[in-house]
């Protein structure tokens, strides 16, 4: 099935309004906590005061999918959990984005071996993913960089400097 990777477009579109809306949406992403495994702890650490996801507008983790617009899939998706995660993805209203946080959400992570029977090999087997954050688990800074990449994807330009390593 052809997966549509960007939110479907509206009935009426104005260029300037689109830019303003995109800026607003990018800087106030409300994540739905979908912490499944160890990556969830890194997500919690990012939400706490040291690494502070609130600087980027994304601290309001919503427990209900109807109030969220970003789904951060943190952790291993098991086959038993797959129907639940698909239901929750359906129930998030548009425009919605998905971040695959951690190796398990990207491709099944360390739990993929020939003969494995329980793990869905990546969130993109279920629905389209916008940003992939590799790591097992990725550091909170990596999750923040993922949020910034998503902002860049939504608005078209990156507002924050690129941090040099070392």
């Amino acid at each position: 099935m052809e997966k549509q990777t960007s939110p479907p477009s509206a009935l009426i579109r104005f260029a300037v309004l689109d830019k303003v809306l995109a800026l607003g949406r990018a800087n106030s992403l409300w994540p739905m906590t979908f912490g499944l495994a160890c990556c969830a702890l890194e997500m919690m650490a990012t939400g706490a005061s040291r690494f502070d996801i609130s600087r980027f507008g994304a601290e309001v983790f919503r427990p209900s999918p109807r109030q969220a617009d970003l789904m951060i899939v943190s952790g291993t998706i098991n086959k038993k959990m797959a129907p639940a995660i698909l239901t929750l993805y359906d129930q998030i209203p548009e425009p919605k984005w998905v971040i695959a946080h951690g190796n398990c959400a990207i491709s099944g992570g360390p739990f993929v071996f020939p003969g494995q029977y329980s793990v869905v090999e990546g969130a993109d087997k279920l629905f389209p993913v916008d940003v992939y954050i590799p790591g097992c688990p990725p550091r909170p800074e990596a999750l923040l960089e993922g949020i910034l990449k998503l902002e860049e994807k939504i608005t078209g330009r990156r507002r924050w400097p690129i941090v040099e390593g070392g």
Binding site: N78, K79, K80, G115, Q116, Y117, S118
Partner: peptide, 17 residues
């Protein structure tokens, strides 16, 4: 913990998916 429609028994020694 397995999906509701699972018919296999994974911890048997002769199981291989």
């Amino acid at each position: 913990v397995l999906p509701e429609d699972a018919t296999f028994h994974p911890l048997r020694k002769d199981f291989s998916a």
